[in-house]
Write a protein that binds this DNA or RNA. Structure first.
Lengths: 226, 226
DNA sequence: AGAAATTTTGACCAGTTGGAAAAATGTTAG
DNA sequence: CTAACATTTTTCCAACTGGTCAAAATTTCT
């Protein structure tokens, strides 16, 4: 009764059965396809048939590797969260505030460019109230942000960074960078064909750097009234 | 064959039949319910049954007013877009740049607070590649933004605003404000119970003002090195 | 090669979903 | 009151969905 099916079912089984190379490959193909479909249609909007088609296999075959739709999604999300938190974790207390913030922004922007599907998968989950990751964001994410907020506060107290709300600071970085992945259609539509070439990414990076470093105040009156 | 059904079917009919007050009321109830459900689950994720339940009526009864699920969604989206573009349209060339931008940010932030479902409905649509509103954003939205970008450019040339990319400037306002509606769960989770009271909104407003006015550079060296 | 294990396929199913048809129940004007 | 119209409910259905299962095809191991 243990090994009627061999491939995936080793979630919490006695004999984890090492996972053949072929199984790993197929699983990766499926996860890749699922990422594509889930990120576009959300969990409920995506069908196993679609994912199977995208993965180039039949539905029952896919279900042989992942017996539950749920589980594909869960795997994607949990893998994603690791990737997603990594850049923030790199934030270094001993570095220069502006260098650290600038490179964090850049890394996040690169992620929006290079992993837009991951970003959208995450956004979909958030939009729907994060039913599948609530614990993850209430514990892991919160702790990490709390920690980094403390670092920011230290910098502010040392006068090396403008005194402001560290949490909202982090939110604004997330928002501005992920926007380019999540609202890609809108960005493309508004920028029009011309402004959409390779320069787009650099334009965004340059603008965000300006925004976070100096805001919109023109040089002439940087330290002006009030 | 014209009037077998009377209520909704007047999309492009000969006799638009004035729409009784009762019909208008019921339609509004349905749209309100649909907004709730669509904004949470996306188009495909939402079912007519759910919407009907939310609206307090039976599915066939709902279908009497909106014969197609599609149409409820379309109506919501098109009504939404008007509301959504209004604040940007108010942007006044003759005003003071900073006053205009600041009040635009505040209006958008208020909208994120007061109409989070609309924001999420819109976000859902964008995430999915805007299949139902592509024309709207490629024409109406683009034109409006082009126009306002020109205003921003003028201000920049007059030295009244930092020289930067006006399109990305607008994107960053959208991103930072809508973030509070679309990623509400995340924001709540990260802020924790304490920091989530009535002050939250004001904190965000204050932070964003600081960000857009001065960036993160501390006062002491506002106009520092190159 | 041949047995054993793994992978793939095809047929199938029960539950859900969007929607149609028609009967039943109001509602209103004459 | 009643005929005409508007609204609501009941019943039903075909397509789709997540998922099962046994048999067939393939790979792996000896």
């Amino acid at each position: 009764m243990v090994s009627k099916k061999t491939a995936a079912a080793d979630t919490v089984d006695a004999k984890p059965r090492p996972l053949t190379r072929i199984q790993k490959e197929k699983q990766d193909i499926i996860l890749e396809a699922a990422l594509e479909v889930f990120s576009l249609h959300g969990f409920r909007g995506a069908t196993i048939d679609q994912i199977a088609a995208q993965a180039g296999m039949s539905k029952p075959n896919l279900l042989y590797y992942f017996p539950k739709k749920d589980e594909i999604h869960r795997r994607l999300i949990s893998e994603l969260l690791v990737t997603w938190l990594a850049p923030l974790a790199e934030f270094d207390e001993d570095g220069d505030p502006f260098t650290e913030i600038r490179s964090y922004i850049r890394r996040k922007l690169e992620m929006a460019r290079d992993f837009p599907r991951e970003s959208r998968l995450f956004a979909n989950e958030m939009l729907q109230g994060a039913p599948r990751v609530s614990e993850m964001i209430e514990v892991d994410l919160k702790n990490l942000v709390d920690e980094k907020a403390k670092v920011l506060l230290t910098w502010m107290e040392q006068g090396r960074l403008a005194r402001t709300d560290p949490y909202h600071l982090i939110f604004s970085i997330w928002a501005t960078t992920q926007h380019y992945a999540d609202f890609d259609v809108q960005v493309r539509a508004v920028l029009g064909k011309d402004r959409n070439g390779e320069g787009r990414f650099e334009d965004a990076a340059r603008y965000l750097e300006q925004l976070f470093m100096h805001g919109l105040t023109p040089k002439a009156r940087s330290a002006g009234k009030a």
